[in-house]
Design a protein around this nucleic acid. Structure first.
Lengths: 111, 111
DNA sequence: CCTTAGTACTACGCGATACATAGTAGCGGG
DNA sequence: CCCGCTACTATGTATCGCGTAGTACTAAGG
């Protein structure tokens, strides 16, 4: 179960995770949710992922197409646009900075 | 300058950074701010750090003592309590889970 | 004395977003 | 028809980083 802090920690992380998941190849919403729900420390839910997808698409970062599903309703497939790819690169770089600084703090020991 | 996403990314990260900074040895508020302000990807400000210090102290994670400063007003020194140390360990573990999952996504490549 | 700059800390309103909850709709099987 | 799974939408709530606007202390300079 997620506590107060874990919830705050995910803010911002979700967008990065969603973009990264899509960057690995075109995929559809439900599949993304399933995948990210299963990741330790993420455990993302629909109510988070779908609005993020909507938001990113609205910003022109995702290209969308619909396709019939063999097992249920129509699926929405997402791919990164060129802007999306650039955004992801910038975000990944920022993430690297943040994690690098945290690593220094957590492993720095007494100072 | 911090954008929308960077701001969200910091939520949750600040508490971890503050606890980690204090875990390295007793230090005072202004010093913590200076230190965390200078870290790439963090760049934290007073308006963020001081309320976090207040919050963490309120939760019993920090022990506080005041001491005159040779260069300005009285300083507030912070140390981790035993609860604080335990909390930090739990948070560090969660952070490791999150960053591990992100690492897998960002480096996993096509799948 | 006043002003300035640096040290040290407080208060507050705003915008953004993850989360839980509560759905709708399609498909296949019993 | 109902049920379970697939696939997606909508909404209200709680939380917190950020920018802004201070207060107060110390020392140095005019």
């Amino acid at each position: 179960m997620k506590g107060r802090w874990e919830t705050q920690l995910r803010k911002g992380v979700v967008e990065l995770a969603v973009l990264a998941a899509i960057a690995r190849g075109e995929t559809y919403g439900y599949r993304i949710v399933e995948e990210l729900r299963a990741l330790p420390g993420l455990e993302l839910t629909e109510s988070t992922v779908y609005p993020v997808l909507t938001r990113l698409a609205g910003e022109g970062l995702l290209a969308i197409r619909a396709e019939d599903s063999p097992t249920g309703p129509t699926r929405r497939y997402y791919r990164l646009t060129a802007d999306g790819t650039r955004r992801l690169q910038g975000m990944a770089a920022e993430w690297t900075r943040v994690t690098g600084s945290l690593k220094g703090l957590l492993e720095g020991g007494p100072q």
